[in-house]
Nucleic acid binder design. Structure first.
Length: 570
RNA sequence: UGGGAGAUCGUCCAACGGUAGGACAACGGACUCUGACUCCGUUUAUCUAGGUUCGAAUCCUAGUCUCCCAGCCA
């Protein structure tokens, strides 16, 4: 696989310029997921960007859990996210949580109050909405906006102490209720939530909002380039507003609680830069819909091989290298885009073509008996494990008088352009030689019971006659030696390119592909008995397959189809 | 006249005042003991209208279209 010649993009160019101008000596980024769900392929772009930039320019990239809303978060997700990032091939400089900074956030809020930049507001959620105005009309000031500093300090302390019920009041930034940017209309800084937190337990009953916590967390960690998706573009003025008012660098006492936990706080003034999120056709990417697919049993779980989650894609058999290459190919811009799934698929095929050893397997078997071999004839062939890489060695391949071939590779009444086996016609048996179909044995109902073939002994592999040209080559397994295996044939989860399209009252559920998985019992060549979970192979002419990382066992093999081979037959 | 952002092949991404190029897709061909891989070739694009300029995807003006924002979510 073409190894990481970094593709330039506007963010990388900013980094290069900042380093060249001396604005930064080193750079620092972060990947900041909220632990409220599993990571999906869309996150892979952000992970590759943040960790990739840090790696390329010898900077640092933290994994930071943006855990400011305990009611949605769970430790299960933080563990899964860590595993996914590592699987993708990245290691964080430090693991942090926004919740590591809760005490600092509290101190900063007190400072904002003292400086007249924040106030405790007793409006309830509905009232706040009414006061906020609309997209085209300005909002109105809260009646609590002019409380004194002393009163606000006292009230805020009582919020922390648990004196107020959930929703009874908030701490709000005093900015501008008439701003065209709604984020600046006195946004909430803290809300009361009497729930325990995945990381801090019951230490707090007030929790900071994203806009407030995110920029401060970036600054505390010394992040230089804070990369996020487009929808945060109009939050940037607020991001900058908090940083400017609080000015962590000028107030070391504010970060003291971080230091006292043994964590460093190399305060910076981070710059937020937005890029467009990654979307793919034929799938959904919203956490809500993914969660619904899982909860409603429409898929087998977060790691269902049809899911666009990283854990699902991994189980499907995609490689981390392929995902990294995909991220490189799609680039980074501010244009909203939907990537064709073929881009990812091409990356997988390219990686696996080089990586995966070849094997033979028959998915829909029909019996072929070689009539000019003696009854009970068995021999052992050797076959290359990889057609382009001799160092991958060879394997023993049992060959016998009775074979399974692919039902699809025989046509009694061939359509034009059919290159495989037909009555009276010849085809090459991979690694064996040329066989002619001499008879069709039928059941009472006229259906085909088995095929009879005649092997041209002069055309056996290695013989001079093997050079004889025939139009097609088909795969096979020895019926006597084949092992049975469950093979799961996956296809796209949705039947339409844009399942999010809700025209004509449809929803993504109406577009679920009823044939997104087909489970068959296949016959595998004997050497596959030694396959290990997560090992990938090319089943010749069929596609790439992986031994399922959960269900595969030596005595009960289970393979997932990763993707088919490209197919140029018409 | 609410605020913010974006418009280049079918899809993504380049071109940073000087030959519109690459990847994926599609199509055609060569090769082939995988109809794979590989190789060769072909088709298709600068949102519109003006302007500046020897020269505009790029600069200016005016439009058009698309996306995001009215959580005590992130």
């Amino acid at each position: 696989m073409s190894e990481v010649l970094p593709a330039n993009n506007f963010i990388r160019q900013i980094v290069i310029d900042d380093l060249a101008s001396g604005k930064h000596r080193t750079i620092s980024t972060r990947f900041p997921p909220e632990p409220n769900g599993y990571l999906h392929i869309g996150h892979a772009k952000s992970i590759c960007l943040n960790f990739g930039l840090a790696a390329e320019f010898a900077g640092r990239c933290n994994l930071r859990f943006d855990d400011t809303n305990p009611s949605k978060e769970d430790i299960e997700y933080v563990e899964a996210i860590k595993a996914d990032v590592r699987w993708l091939g990245f290691e964080w400089a430090e693991l942090r949580h926004a919740s590591d900074y809760f005490e600092t956030f509290y101190l900063c809020a007190q400072q904002l109050i003292r400086d007249g930049h924040a106030y405790v507001c007793d409006l309830n959620a509905e009232e706040v909405r009414a006061y906020r105005g609309t997209l085209t009309e300005p909002g109105r000031n809260s009646p609590y906006r002019e409380r004194t500093v002393e009163e606000n300090l006292d009230l805020f302390a009582r919020m922390r102490a648990g004196d107020f019920a959930d929703g009874a009041c908030t701490l709000r930034a005093k900015i501008d209720m008439a701003s065209g940017n709604i984020n600046l209309r006195d946004p909430a800084i803290y809300r009361v939530r009497k729930v325990s937190h995945q990381n801090t337990g019951d230490a707090w009953c007030i929790y900071p909002m994203y806009d407030y916590a995110h920029g401060l967390s970036d600054a505390i960690e010394g992040v230089t380039h804070s990369l996020c998706t487009l929808e945060f573009e109009d939050h940037r003025p607020l991001y900058d507003w908090y940083l400017a008012r609080i000015n962590l660098a000028a107030h070391p006492e504010l970060t003291a609680p971080v230091l006292s936990q043994g964590l460093s706080a190399p305060v910076s003034t981070p710059r937020q830069i937005e890029f467009s999120r990654l979307n793919f056709d034929y799938t959904v990417m919203s956490k809500r819909k993914l969660l619904a697919l899982v909860n409603d049993g429409l898929v087998a779980g977060w790691d269902d091989p049809r899911m666009p989650t990283l854990i699902g894609i991994r189980r499907r058999g995609y490689t981390a290298a392929a995902i990294r290459e995909m991220a490189r190919r799609v680039g980074v811009t501010k244009q909203e885009s939907v990537i064709e799934f073929s881009v990812l698929e091409n990356c997988v095929r390219e990686d696996l073509d080089a990586l995966a050893e070849r094997r033979m397997a028959v998915i829909d078997p029909i019996r072929l008996v070689i009539d000019n071999l003696p009854e009970g004839h068995v021999e052992t062939l050797t076959a290359a494990n990889h057609p382009k890489d001799e160092s991958r060695g060879q394997r023993a391949l049992p060959f016998a008088r009775e074979l399974w071939i692919e039902r699809e590779d025989f046509m009694e009444a061939p359509v034009k352009g059919f290159h495989r086996l037909v009555p009276g016609g010849e085809v090459r048996l991979r690694f064996v030689g040329i066989v002619k179909c001499v008879d069709i044995v039928r059941n009472a109902d006229g259906s085909i019971q088995e095929l009879r073939g005649h092997l041209d002994l002069d055309s056996r592999s290695g013989m001079p006659g093997a050079d004889r040209k025939v139009k097609g080559t088909i795969h096979w397994v020895a019926a006597t030696h084949a092992i049975a295996a469950e093979v799961r044939l996956y296809d796209r989860l949705f039947t339409v390119a844009d399942p999010d399209d809700e025209h004509e009252g449809k929803t993504y559920r109406d577009y679920l592909n009823p044939d997104s998985v087909r489970i068959v019992t296949a016959r595998l060549e004997a050497s596959l008995a030694r396959a290990e979970a997560e090992q990938r192979f090319q089943f010749e002419r069929l596609g790439y397959f992986v031994a399922d990382r959960i269900d595969h066992r030596a005595d009960r093999p289970v393979f997932n189809r990763i993707c088919t081979l490209r197919d140029s037959k018409k």
